[in-house]
């Protein structure tokens, strides 16, 4: 667990990495819109090409971008099966497959949904692989900032998110330490059924939470000592700035997505 990386971010200095997180968040939003609007496979081919170009510009290893697809492979299989297989020979052209019937038209439909899932997963993977979690939190905060006028504590939520991200490795490390220490007292985490296993985690979870609360207490003191006041306006050393390249990418990408959504 020591080598655990936050989220799945892979640091690099590529064109995609350098884009403002808002550009990338917006890009994924338009991508989603297009994916759910188009009705033809040809549209997917074009969207696939756009994504492939982005992956190339991100200098990320293709394998890591496709890892997310592997994670949803079961969902893909179920989607295909649910559309392609029937209990009765209801439709024309269906073929017997043991007790089931294979429906080619359904298969094509299922494949359409499956491709949509694949493209969506690859697109969002690209976002999280090429954007640090902190930048993502910053981007979300900036996008949500108008909500602050409605009384939504946008700044506090963003700070919460940043601190949660910051403490993930610390907490994972501590969980590992506590597990090893309890194992040294004879605790077993890999024996028995699910209930016994869940109960075996009590000696890990209780100290972990007690320590987290203590940590939270001290952190609150340290934050106040450095003039943090909940809800007050802060500035940022790295102010997010939309550069010309961001606007160009966003306009071109959004235009393409909207055109596809309307035309296909």
């Amino acid at each position: 667990m020591r080598g655990l990386s936050i989220g799945q971010y892979i640091p690099a200095d590529s064109f995609v990495h350098r884009l403002d997180p808002r550009t990338k968040l917006g890009g994924v939003a338009f991508l989603t819109l297009a994916l759910f609007s188009v009705r033809r496979f040809e549209a997917f081919a074009l969207i696939g090409a756009m994504i492939a170009a982005s992956v190339a510009a991100s200098s990320l290893p293709v394998r890591s971008v496709l890892r997310g697809v592997k994670a949803v492979s079961l969902v893909l299989a179920i989607t295909l099966a649910a559309h392609a297989l029937r209990w009765g020979a209801a439709t024309e052209g269906a073929m017997a497959l043991g007790p089931l019937w294979f429906d080619p038209a359904g298969f094509v439909r299922g494949a359409f949904f499956a491709v949509r899932i694949v493209l969506l997963v690859v697109g969002t993977s690209l976002l999280t692989l090429a954007t640090s979690p902190v930048a993502l939190a910053d981007g979300l905060e900036r996008l949500m900032r108008p909500l602050a006028t409605l009384g939504v504590p946008v700044g506090d939520v963003a700070m919460m998110l940043t601190i949660a991200l910051r403490f993930i490795p610390t907490t994972a490390y501590e969980a590992e330490q506590v597990m090893v220490a309890q194992a040294a007292r004879g605790a077993r985490f890999d024996e028995g059924g699910p209930i016994r296993r869940a109960r075996a985690l009590v000696p890990v979870l209780v100290p972990l939470f007690v320590n987290l609360f203590r940590r939270a207490d001290e952190l609150a003191v340290a934050m106040e000592a450095r003039c943090y006041v909940s809800g007050r306006r802060r500035t940022r050393m790295h102010e997010l700035r939309m550069h010309l390249s961001d606007w160009v990418v966003l306009v071109v990408w959004a235009g393409a997505c909207l055109a596809l959504a309307l035309a296909m």
Partner: peptide, 28 residues
Amino acid sequence: LQNPENQIVGATVEEDVAFGPENLALPP
């Protein structure tokens, strides 16, 4: 404070040092 880990807010060294001045809303 005594516990080094529990007073660090930022995700990187420089962001942590920037935390206080950011709270004072100083220019970037």
